[in-house]
């Protein structure tokens, strides 16, 4: 088994909080709490969850765009949080990011050349000739014609713009790329193009991906391992196959049951009680308790720790009453 490239240990990110001038407590949102994960070299870790579960905050923590309020993040043996503060460029050479909205992540007033040259100039300090050569390589890698270099972002479709976003992330030749919903703003036919390109690039350059998405089928198709997040915490993590074939957390079950599958006319039973808890007023114990069919008083008392499944050491679930039978509906 390969060495972990990225290790996240009980990371926490709280927004707001503190006290006002008069000493009153200000509201705080725990976007990410007690998240521990590791990503091994060369694998794709899928992070699934619904909106507001903290997956994008986690992504920003990994690339150093945001700092955790507690916990540590280690990249290749070095403290990532300290590095992001001390030498962000050094970190950016090794860890890169692909944004969700391809068009918003490109400056409308810059040509593609200027956008792609920025990392080459500022991160790698390449001279003009080397930059030219690298630009050509990059455009080829994401399957775009070199003529596109002198155009502006608004001239591109969503899929092309996302490929430019990927080229920019690749430019500095990083080891880890965090992909934050890279295909959810794209049309389905284009989504497949982008997913295939990502797969090719990973093989060619030996990349490691953290792939964040709300779309279970996309995550299943790209991931080696999966982490399911709910309300800022990890509900379940393990090898993708095991999670999708035999989910143990009731929330993972619910997600799998809810995802629409072509050719499946199955509607989940109606239940209006499907809302997330109020982030300003989190419930005690397990956040999923209110929606959970298996919940007991024990779930309200304390938050269940992430524990290994019997006989499956890599598969860990934060649930007191996990589902044990194999196969999902």
């Amino acid at each position: 088994m390969a060495e972990p490239l990225l290790e996240i240990d009980s990371a926490e990110r709280i927004f707001g909080g503190g006290r006002s001038l008069l000493g009153r407590k200000l509201p705080a949102v725990h976007a990410v709490q007690g998240v521990s994960l590791d990503v091994r070299k060369g694998e794709t870790l899928g992070v699934v969850g619904e909106s507001g579960c903290g997956k994008s905050t986690l992504a920003r923590l990994i690339v150093g765009l945001d700092k955790p309020t507690a916990g540590t993040i280690t990249f290749d043996g070095r403290d990532l949080v300290a590095e992001a503060r001390r030498d962000p460029q050094r970190l950016a050479r090794r860890v890169q990011y692909v944004f969700q909205d391809p068009v918003a992540s490109l400056n409308p007033r810059k040509t593609i050349r200027a956008i792609l040259e920025a990392p080459l100039r500022h991160l790698l300090a390449l001279d003009k000739k080397a930059r030219q050569a690298r630009l050509k390589e990059l455009m080829e890698a994401v399957n775009l014609a070199p003529e596109f270099l002198d155009r502006y972002p608004h001239e591109f479709s969503g899929g092309q713009a996302q490929r430019i976003g990927i080229a920019r992330a690749l430019a500095a030749d990083p080891e880890l790329i965090v992909l934050d919903e890279p295909v959810s703003a794209l049309d389905v036919s284009v989504q497949a193009q982008v997913l295939n390109i990502l797969d090719d690039l990973k093989q060619r350059f030996g990349l490691t991906y953290v792939f964040i998405s709300h779309d279970l089928s996309v995550v299943e198709s790209v991931s080696d391992r999966v982490a399911v997040m709910y309300f800022g915490r990890i509900a379940e993590t393990g090898p993708a196959r095991e999670i999708f074939a035999a989910p143990r957390h009731p929330y993972t079950h619910l997600l799998l049951k809810s995802a629409p599958v072509p050719g499946r006319r199955s509607l989940v039973p109606e239940d209006a009680n499907t809302e997330l808890p109020d982030p300003y007023d989190p419930p005690p114990g397990c956040a999923f308790h209110a929606r959970c069919p298996r919940g007991t008083d024990r779930c309200l008392a304390s938050h269940p720790p992430l524990e290994q499944a019997a006989g499956r050491p890599a598969h860990r679930t934060a649930c007191y009453h996990p589902v044990e039978e194999r196969g999902h509906a």
């Binding site: 765009l65 890169q96 956008i115 920025a118 990392p119 500022h122 992330a169 430019a171």
Partner: peptide, 14 residues
Amino acid sequence: RREFVDAARLSGKS
């Protein structure tokens, strides 16, 4: 607060 500013930061711009 737009994404392209984050992107520029990750491109190593000061």
